[in-house]
């Protein structure tokens, strides 16, 4: 740890589904301003962890706090107010909306007007729409999405959809961005592009990134800190170099000589 304050603090979180433990007593932290990655073999509980943080699952035990404020028990739709945004492993775009509207939905909680203002679409609603549109256009420019601005999201190629999803999360102007396998299914060029975007988001915009990813090359390249999960437990945690040479991590990924069931 480099001594800076944790933005996200996960304390002893356990999650069980009908006696099957998805996570058991996970403790980890994400430092403010860092890119922290969560890795682990399939079924290790990475996405479950993200779902606990974003509010889809409620941990059976333990607590999660962000910037000193307790997150556990807060409904998912209120967590954007804490500065939290996420993307999904499988593309979870609003397929029927244009790219622009997808990003505008991303800003949903930042727009303040009510249903009646929506119906009348006068003064306040109109001003807010224009103001937030300006901000959304900046994100569109940043991610090079301008050619697709008015294209229906469902009609876009896969790699672009992944970017739109990143854009939608960014539109909320989060402090902490949870990315669930943003490089999955992408070719080398798209992967590099995405990695570059993530670094820019982190460095230029000062957004803390919590990344779940299988592409080890990317993870080791861009992360400040890596957490390894296996069977719902934290196996190791540290700098990319330290984690890579950790014998427990090596055996979790490659298996060890004595077979699968040895004391894990």
């Amino acid at each position: 740890m480099n001594g800076s304050s944790p933005l996200l603090d996960v304390q002893e979180v356990s999650l069980t589904f009908k006696n099957v433990a998805a996570l058991s007593r996970v403790t980890c932290r994400v430092d403010k301003g860092s890119i922290t990655s969560l890795i682990g073999p399939n079924g290790a509980g990475k996405t479950s962890m993200l779902n606990c943080i974003s509010g889809r699952y409620t941990p059976t035990k333990g607590k999660i706090s962000m910037d000193g404020r307790e997150l556990t028990g807060v409904p998912a739709h209120k967590r954007t107010g804490f500065g939290l945004a996420r993307t999904f492993q499988n593309i979870a775009l609003f397929r029927g909306l244009s790219v622009l509207d997808n990003l505008m939905v991303g800003r949903h909680s930042r727009l303040g007007y009510g249903l009646l203002a929506s119906i009348l679409y006068l003064g306040k609603a109109r001003r807010e729409e224009t103001r937030h549109r300006r901000r959304v256009e900046e994100i569109i420019d940043f991610l090079n999405l301008s050619p697709y601005r008015h294209t229906i999201a469902g009609h876009l190629p896969y790699g672009v959809q992944k970017k739109v999803e990143l854009g939608r999360a960014l539109a909320a102007e989060p402090q902490l961005l949870l990315l669930d396998e943003p490089m999955a299914g992408m070719n080398l060029e798209e992967t590099e592009d995405m990695a570059r975007s993530i670094l820019d988001i982190n460095e230029e915009w000062g957004v803390t990134v919590f990344l779940v990813e299988h592409d080890m090359g990317v993870v080791m390249d861009i992360s400040d800190h890596v957490i390894v999960l296996d069977f719902g437990r934290v196996l190791a945690s540290g700098t990319p170099q330290a984690v890579q040479t950790n014998p427990k991590v090596v055996s979790a990924y490659l298996g060890d000589e004595d077979g699968l069931y040895k004391g894990r």
Binding site: R56, F88, D101
Partner: peptide, 17 residues
């Protein structure tokens, strides 16, 4: 937009607030 978001993907609609 929020209505369409609910129709198209209610989980991510929830996560954008």
């Amino acid at each position: 937009r929020a209505f369409v978001a609910i129709r198209d993907y209610h989980q991510s609609a929830e996560n954008v607030g």
